[in-house]
């Protein structure tokens, strides 16, 4: 992070990828844009209704969260226990991610882990991740499960470890500095031929959960599988996400954070910014650019540039969310 901010002053207009986002633009869904970077990362800042994204090679000047009332970090897809050629040292890369967190100018209020904590739902895998995350300079870690965390027991062990105070398969919400955070579960009861799924009970809960909030409340939704159709052919989407998002239409600022696809990607649609985070374990190919979404083997000296940490900063009052992806190099 330090390294990236040091380059702030050199940001050239060429590095700016401009996206207009209508602040009240719930009805204006015409302007859609999807961006993907593999190997770098995205910095995203919303100001006065205009969202700007920058590649990490030329960050704009941004106060590193100093003016923000809230900043937090997203980690994802640690796959503890994975030991194949794509990354034989997932312990080392998760530790490197935590080092990145600890090097932030301001300690984040908390870490969100968007699932696939473990590779095979083994108790020792969860234990290792918990142990490593203890060294992170932050007050709290919030989790949602990935499909690798609920293997063989319908998510029983996951709930025992991380489900305290959650509903159903582990969904919950909390408020922090005026921002409403919602952790959702879309990896349970998957149906043949389908994508990620929330299910009726969870959708009902979500509708009630956000009903009482004023429309000016910034909303951050986090779940494992992307809520937008990144690439349905590979299962990268959620079948009933449209219904979930319909409950969030009236809000001025909605950010959706996901993992699962092991690469950073963004999409802006109306009032909603979708963002997927890199894995701390191994990269996966760009949509459709390989026979399957299996782990991507890259030269060892390139691996860490494809893994990462996401730093999200909310500036309360201006309803501004900035998302910064940082790789592990």
């Amino acid at each position: 992070m330090h390294k990236n901010h040091a380059r702030d002053a050199k940001a050239a207009p060429d590095n700016e990828l401009l996206h207009q986002q209508d602040r009240d633009g719930i009805d204006r869904r015409g302007f859609l844009k999807c961006m993907a970077w593999a190997g770098t990362g995205a910095f995203c800042l919303i100001q006065g209704g205009v969202l700007r994204s920058y590649s990490l090679d030329g960050l704009p000047s941004f106060g590193g969260g100093h003016h923000a009332e809230l900043s937090f970090v997203q980690l994802s897809d640690s796959h503890m226990g994975f030991d194949k050629a794509a990354n034989p040292d997932v312990v080392g890369t998760l530790k490197a991610a935590v080092d990145k967190v600890n090097a932030l100018p301001l300690p984040p209020a908390f870490i969100l882990h968007t699932g696939d904590i473990s590779h095979l739902s083994k108790p020792s895998e969860f234990d290792t991740v918990d142990q490593i995350l203890k060294s992170a300079r932050t007050n709290d870690v919030f989790f949602v499960p990935g499909e690798h965390d609920v293997l063989n027991d319908e998510g029983k062990q996951y709930l025992e470890r991380y489900g305290k105070g959650t509903q159903g398969a582990g969904w919950y919400s909390f408020d922090k500095n005026g921002v409403h955070f919602v952790g959702l579960v879309n990896v349970m009861n998957l149906k043949a031929g389908g994508l990620g799924s929330f299910g009726g009970e969870q959708l009902e809960w979500l509708e009630k959960d956000v009903k009482h909030l004023s429309k000016s409340t910034p909303i951050v939704v986090f779940a494992h599988i992307p809520l937008w159709s990144v690439y349905p052919e590979w299962g990268w989407g959620t079948d009933d996400s449209a219904q979930a998002l319909s409950y969030l239409k009236r809000f001025g600022s909605v950010t959706v954070l996901n993992g699962h696809i092991h690469q950073t990607m963004q999409k802006i649609e109306g009032n909603v910014t979708f963002h997927t985070a890199a894995s701390t374990a191994f990269p996966q190919p760009k949509p459709g650019q390989a026979p399957s979404p299996g782990p991507m083997k890259v030269p060892a000296d390139q691996l860490r540039s494809l893994l990462g940490v996401t730093d999200v900063t909310a500036v309360h009052g201006k309803h501004t969310l900035a998302v910064t992806d940082s790789n592990l190099t």
């Binding site: 499909e147 690798h148 052919e233």
Partner: peptide
């Protein structure tokens, strides 16, 4: 007998 992968249900 139709079947699928419980982790990746697109696999049928």
């Amino acid at each position: 007998y139709s079947y699928f992968c419980g982790l990746h249900p697109k696999m049928t």
